[in-house]
C-alpha cells in the first residue's frame, strides 16, 4: 500500500523483506492452527485435554461432545470464514481507496446490512439471525452498489476519494434511518442491539453455508484482482501504461469487498476493526506487494477473530462477551500500537 510514496528500498531492505515474507508464513500458519485448537479446547466450560481427545475419537461424554462439536465447532469455522473475508476485504478497500484508515464499512456494507435488518425487524417482526441474514446480505449489496454509483457518477470511472466520501455520507444518512427504526419500539431496539454487538455464538452451520458461496466468489475475485493492485498503487497513469485495466480492476475490487464483507456481516453482525487492522499487520510481514498482503490478510484475519472470540468466552465466565465487542476494545489499542510503528505505516 502506498508503495509509490515511500523511498526506494535498499538492497539490504529487500533481503530482509524476503526473509520476513517467507519466514513469516510458517509462523502465521502455526499461529492459525494453534488458534483453531484453542477455539475448540477453550471456553466457558472447562473441558480437559483428555476429553477433547476423547471427543475426537468419539468416546467423550455426550454433553462434552456437544459443547465441542455443536457449539465450539461451528463458531470456529465461522471465525475462520469471517476472519478471512474481513481481512481480505480490508486489504482490498485500503488498496482501492489508497487510504490506510479505510475499512469495508467505508463502502456502506455495515450500514446497508444494518438498514435492511432493521427494516426486517421492525416491519416484518424478525428476531433472529436465521431470519434476517438474507436481508443483511441484500442490504450490504444494495447499499454498496448505491455508494459505487454515487462515487463514480458522471466520471465514468471510480474516484477513490469520491467513493470514500460517498460511502461516509451514505452510511451517515442510513445510520439516522437505522436509529429511528431502532427507537420505534422496544423489541426492535433489543434485537438491533444484539445485531450490532456482532457475535459468532449460537450460529448453526447453515448460517455459514448460506454465506459461503458469496465469500468464495468474493475471495476468487479478490485473488484475481490483487496482482493488478500493485500497479494501481503506483498511480492510475502508471497502471494504464502498464496495461492494467484500472476501471475493471476497481469494479472487481468493489464487487469482492461487497461479497466478502457483506457475507461476513450477514453471518455475524458488524465486527469492527478486523478489516482495518489486519492489512496493517499483513503489511508488516508481507511488505507492499499486494499479492502477499492478500495472502497474509487471508490468514491473519481468522487468527484475530478466533483470538477475540476465545478471549470473549473466557474473560466474563460464566457468561460471555460477543466477539464484536472484544474486537472493538482490543482492536483499538492494537491498532494504535501498530500505527506508532513507522514500519507498519510506511510500507
Amino acid at each position: 500500500m502506498n508503495a509509490s510514496r515511500t523511498a526506494p528500498p535498499r538492497p539490504a531492505d529487500g533481503a530482509r523483506r524476503r526473509v520476513t515474507r517467507f519466514g513469516g508464513l510458517p509462523v502465521v500458519l502455526v499461529a492459525l492452527a494453534v488458534m483453531c485448537v484453542l477455539s475448540i479446547a477453550l471456553g466457558a466450560k472447562s473441558i480437559s485435554p483428555v476429553t477433547v481427545v476423547e471427543a475426537v475419537i468419539g468416546t467423550a461424554p455426550p454433553g462434552e461432545a456437544f459443547v465441542l462439536w455443536e457449539l465450539r465447532g461451528p463458531r470456529t469455522l465461522l471465525c475462520l470464514a469471517v476472519g478471512a473475508a474481513l481481512g481480505v476485504a480490508g486489504m482490498l478497500v485500503q488498496a482501492l481507496t489508497r487510504n490506510p484508515l479505510a475499512d469495508p464499512g467505508i463502502l456502506g456494507v455495515n450500514a446497508g446490512a444494518a438498514l435492511l435488518v432493521a427494516v426486517g425487524v421492525v416491519f416484518l417482526g424478525l428476531d433472529s439471525i436465521g431470519e434476517y441474514r438474507w436481508l443483511a446480505i441484500a442490504g450490504a449489496l444494495l447499499v454498496t452498489v448505491l455508494v459505487y454509483l454515487i462515487g463514480s457518477a458522471g466520471r465514468g470511472q471510480i474516484d477513490p476519494v469520491r467513493l470514500t466520501l460517498a460511502g461516509v455520507a451514505v452510511a451517515a444518512v442510513l445510520q439516522g434511518v437505522i436509529s429511528a427504526l431502532m427507537l420505534s419500539d422496544p423489541r426492535s431496539f433489543d434485537t438491533m442491539r444484539n445485531w450490532n454487538a456482532g457475535t459468532v455464538a449460537s450460529r448453526e452451520l447453515d448460517i455459514l453455508w448460506s454465506v459461503l458461496p458469496l465469500l468464495a466468489v468474493g475471495m476468487a475475485v479478490a485473488a484475481a484482482a490483487s496482482p493488478a493492485l500493485n500497479a494501481i498503487a503506483m498511480g492510475d497513469d502508471v497502471a494504464v501504461s502498464l496495461g492494467v485495466p484500472v476501471r475493471v480492476v476497481r469494479i472487481a475490487v468493489v464487487v469482492a469487498v461487497t461479497l466478502l464483507a457483506g457475507g461476513a456481516t450477514a453471518a455475524t453482525g458488524p465486527l469492527v476493526f478486523i478489516g482495518l487492522m489486519v492489512p496493517h499487520i499483513a503489511r508488516v510481514l508481507a511488505g507492499p506487494d499486494q499479492r502477499w498482503v492478500f495472502l497474509y490478510s487471508l490468514l491473519i484475519g481468522p487468527i484475530l477473530v478466533l483470538a477475540a472470540d476465545v478471549l470473549g468466552r473466557l474473560v466474563m465466565r460464566p457468561g460471555e462477551i460477543p466477539v464484536g465487542i472484544v474486537t472493538s476494545f482490543v482492536g483499538a489499542p492494537v491498532l494504535i500500537a501498530l500505527i506508532r510503528r513507522r514500519r507498519a505505516v510506511a510500507s
Binding site: 466450560k45 457449539l71 428476531d127 433472529s128 423489541r187 449460537s202 460464566p318 460471555e320
Partner: peptide, 26 residues
C-alpha cells in the same frame, strides 16, 4: 449486566424450576 451463564454451561441451570424467556426462538 454480567449476570449470565454461557450456553456451554447449560448444566448450571439446575434449579427445580427453570423459567426461560425465549425471545429469540432458541
Amino acid at each position: 449486566t454480567d449476570a449470565a451463564v454461557s450456553e456451554e454451561l447449560l448444566d448450571q441451570l439446575d434449579a427445580d424450576v427453570l423459567a426461560v424467556f425465549d425471545r429469540i426462538g432458541a
